[in-house]
Design a protein around this nucleic acid. Structure first.
Length: 570
DNA sequence: GTTTCATCGAGCTCCATTAG
DNA sequence: CTAATGGAGCTCGATGAAAC
């Protein structure tokens, strides 16, 4: 990826702040577009002067000082006018978003790190009088990318394009930053972890120093909460855990020997301001191992490298030198051997699934487990209300889970779980149902103790047209086949009604594989093309294949499973 | 000591609505 | 008509509480 020159070591200041301004020339099109005054600041590191274009509005309300600006900002906040974005605002947005790209990648979905608020703050300091929210910035940026992608695709496919639109004038800036050659702008999507960071890392230069300083101050102030682990923290923790391994082994399961607290104390001594608990260290460590194993599996099966954590090296070194050492935190004592072995995953999932539907007391609320009867009623009601769910899918005010919760309440006086809790429980059930399918496909044996599985299976296969609209989708460990399950439950678009198709439309990747996804649902991350998974015999007409496969689904579940088993390669 | 369940908060996406 | 926002739903990572 081409690194644009705007990643240079330049400090940006609001126009109203004094600074060392250099003479600079800007591309004519930029200044013309923005009609803005520009300011370029000195490279403090003096490591090769590079300039950054910093547009400022030819402001009507020019403010004399930063103080006045802050007051004006406060006054303006809350108005949230729906005024169109000025060109200069958009250009600044793109520049800052690119500059913060490494942080966006690193902090995707993390609690306690609101990247768009950080960007908004920088927008505010770069553009006096800027009053839009972080959310507005996020939406504007995403809509730009969406439009860009669409236009590029349209042009590629020879369709009529809309390049004369307002967004067009910013495509150069977007391309200059991300240089995507018209491919998907991955950086803002859930798949951002797939992006190779190496290119964008170079962008994290002096421009982020202020932000880094601010963050470090924050840490010193003890604003901990659920903040993402820094790489340095994780590395230190893994190293310490390794170093203390003999003690961990010696004191395993002994009461009064809280090894993780000891490790936590050493973390504090090594990292001033470290405020996480020993339990948090333990969880993070176990999560790292789990993730590592998952990544290795994925790499082995699909050839796709998902994560690139530096401390994986440490874990690997440890594993290879100390084969059995991980027994405290893994399901199998032979993890060093079972790495990459799907059977191991099966064992792991099986173990998990056996405990899945463990019931707690007939709980009233909060984090008490759901009672069997509650779950069954939940599924029953959800099934009963399915047409309503489909009808109101994504409609404002639909609030279907509230309605379902009301019906739960009428059946269970004293039922105190929230609509959201109902939704989450249901999504969790579906997620585990998918896990069940994986286990079944991997081992050929029906996992035990899936109490509510039958209810779900019955519904999923009788009603393939709607579930996509109301359930959580992929679990991280099984994203490939989960999406296929979604497709399965979405149903055959050639049969579904127009409205159903509209409501439950598959994503683009899925839409091209519809006829053949049936088999992969029961597979487990089978590498290669879908045809490797299930291939109708060659003497069947192309046009008959989809119906043939779907016809299988209409039969009983078990016979279908049986017929499928031999075709699934693991 | 380890794992699971449920929750929280941040980000993204989609459709409907509203303002310019 | 188009762009921006509202609102709902989804995924993901971290964590408290409880179960094992």
């Amino acid at each position: 990826m081409e690194v644009p020159d705007i990643t240079a070591s330049i400090y940006i200041r609001p126009q109203n702040m004094r600074s060392n301004v250099l003479n600079a020339e800007f591309p004519a099109d930029l200044t013309e577009n923005s009609g803005a005054a520009c300011e370029v600041l000195e490279d403090k590191e003096d490591d090769g002067l590079q300039l950054m274009y910093v547009p400022f509005p030819s402001t009507k309300k020019k403010l004399g000082s930063s103080r006045k600006y802050l007051i004006a900002k406060e006054e303006a906040e809350g108005e949230e006018a729906k005024k169109n974005w000025m060109d200069s605002e958009v250009e600044t947005l793109i520049s800052l978003r690119w500059e913060l790209e490494p942080d966006f990648l690193k902090n995707a979905y993390k609690q306690g790190v609101d990247m768009w608020s950080q960007l908004q703050a920088r927008m505010s300091s770069a553009i006096p009088g800027f009053t839009r929210s972080g959310l507005a910035c996020q939406r504007k940026f995403n809509s730009l990318i969406k439009q860009h992608k669409k236009d590029v695709l349209d042009v590629k496919e020879g369709k009529h394009h809309t390049w004369d639109r307002h967004a067009r004038k910013f495509y150069d800036s977007l391309d200059r930053c991300w240089h995507t050659n018209g491919t998907v702008m991955k950086h803002v999507t859930a798949n951002s972890m797939h992006v190779n960071h190496s290119d964008s890392d170079t962008a994290l230069t002096n421009g982020n120093k202020e932000e880094n300083l601010r963050m470090s101050v924050k840490e010193d102030e003890g604003e901990e909460a659920k903040k993402n682990w820094l790489d340095s923290e994780a590395e230190t923790m893994v190293s310490l855990r390794w170093e203390m391994e003999p003690e961990f082994v010696g004191n395993a399961y002994k009461t009064g020997e809280d090894m993780w607290s000891k490790l936590q104390m050493r973390m504090v001594s090594l990292i001033p301001g470290f405020q996480r608990s020993g339990l948090a260290c333990q969880r993070k460590f176990n999560a790292l191992i789990k993730q590592h194993k998952k990544d290795i599996l994925e790499l082995k099966e699909s050839g796709r490298e998902r994560y690139n954590y530096r401390f994986y090296d440490i874990l690997d070194r440890w594993w290879h030198t100390n084969g059995t050492v991980m027994k405290h935190v893994t399901a199998s004592p032979n993890d060093s051997e079972s790495l990459g072995n799907p059977e191991h995953l099966t064992e792991y999932l099986d173990d998990a699934s056996n405990k899945l539907l463990r019931e707690g007391d007939e709980g009233e609320e909060g984090k008490k487990n759901w009672a069997d009867s509650e779950v069954e009623t939940l599924i029953g009601l959800r099934k009963e209300m399915d047409s309503e769910f489909v009808k109101n899918w994504k409609k404002q005010g639909g609030n279907m889970w509230s309605k379902l919760r009301s019906r739960m309440l009428s059946l269970y006086p004293g039922f105190t779980r929230s609509p959201l809790a109902c939704k989450r429980k249901f999504n969790t059930l579906v997620r585990h149902h998918k896990k069940y399918m994986h286990i079944l496909a991997a081992s050929g044996e029906e996992p035990l103790n899936f109490k509510h599985h039958d209810l779900l299976v019955q519904w999923l296969h009788n009603n393939r047209t709607s579930l996509r609209c109301s359930t959580a989708t992929a679990s991280a460990s099984a994203s490939a086949s989960d999406s296929d399950l979604n497709q399965l439950t979405t149903g055959d678009p050639t049969v579904a009604s127009e409205s159903q198709r509209d409501v439950c439309k598959p994503n683009k990747a899925e839409s091209s594989i519809i006829p053949y996804v049936v088999g992969i649902q029961y597979g487990i991350n089978v590498p290669g093309s879908l045809s490797n998974v299930i291939e109708p015999s060659s003497d069947v007409n192309e046009k008959d294949k989809p119906s043939m496969l779907l016809a299988k689904l209409d039969g009983e579940i078990d016979p279908f499973m049986d017929s499928l088993k031999p075709t699934v390669s693991i």
